[in-house]
Design a protein around this nucleic acid. Structure first.
Lengths: 136, 136
DNA sequence: CCTAAAAAGTTACCTAAGTAACTATATACC
DNA sequence: GGTATATAGTTACTTAGGTAACTTTTTAGG
């Protein structure tokens, strides 16, 4: 049973990402980009290391995705005292993108959640949280 | 709350794969390879399309991973009537690999599951299963 | 029987995530 | 103040996943 849980969950997240990407095509964003745009909206601005810590993804991966977001002019660099760091924030265009993408993501997630009891979701949330904490 | 569940779960599976890969290094296998070896052990033999359907991963991805497993002589081709298909099975070396990797994976998964109540795990399993079914 | 459609794999090329090794800047310590 | 260490980010290269387009073989329909 335990075996199967992890396998099932790996498969689910793979398909989840795939389907969400299909929906995000219409606004011109990938899920990986969305997760950074989402974070920057919440916190206003952040360095690459801060994004790395929040998403728990390695620096080179973040570096590349941030580069693409900058090329699309969805985010921009902020001046900083520490010359090593790149502090980024959403541009006006990025904020508009956030609004559009939020709708797409939210609609998709809500459609999945319909009919799943809240208590079950809460139990699942706790479980995944505990599992994640153990990994660290 | 729902928002966070998907984000949390994506992050968890990413870290899960990473850590499991670190453990699997000692037997010389990647998680993606393990999932194919595991399936071939369960069903005896399978074509690429059958593996594709079981894992819900696209054909080119499976094709590449199978190629590597064959190069490592962990799996081998079986003769088949349909000249299009490649029916694969574990070699003797592949079976030995299965045993070693099974221990690694099982130990890792059990260590994560310790202290998590069974009822919570069952609820989580049902939830992920329902979510996955909705995606299809 | 012959041709069109379907199915199994492969190839080429895209994004996503990882490690290792590097540069440049900032901090700590003697 | 000068040197060693730590931190931020990048570059090069790996595996993992995806799509689109292709070849080869099989199946279906006329």
């Amino acid at each position: 049973m335990s075996q199967r849980f992890f396998q099932l969950n790996m498969q689910f997240t793979r398909t989840f990402r795939k389907k969400l990407n299909e929906h995000l095509v219409e606004v011109g964003l990938y899920y990986s980009q969305w997760s950074i745009v989402y974070y920057l909206k919440q916190c206003g601005s952040a360095t690459l290391v801060e994004i790395t810590n929040y998403l728990d993804v390695e620096k080179p991966t973040i570096s590349r995705t941030v580069k693409r977001l900058e090329e699309q002019q969805l985010i921009e660099r902020l001046p900083s005292e520490d010359k090593r760091e790149r502090k980024m924030q959403l541009t006006k265009k990025g904020l508009e993108m956030y609004e559009k993408a939020y709708d797409v993501v939210n609609k998709f997630e809500q459609s999945l959640l319909a009919e799943i009891p809240e208590t079950e979701m809460e139990a699942s949330f706790r479980t995944i949280q505990q599992l994640r904490d153990k990994l660290k």
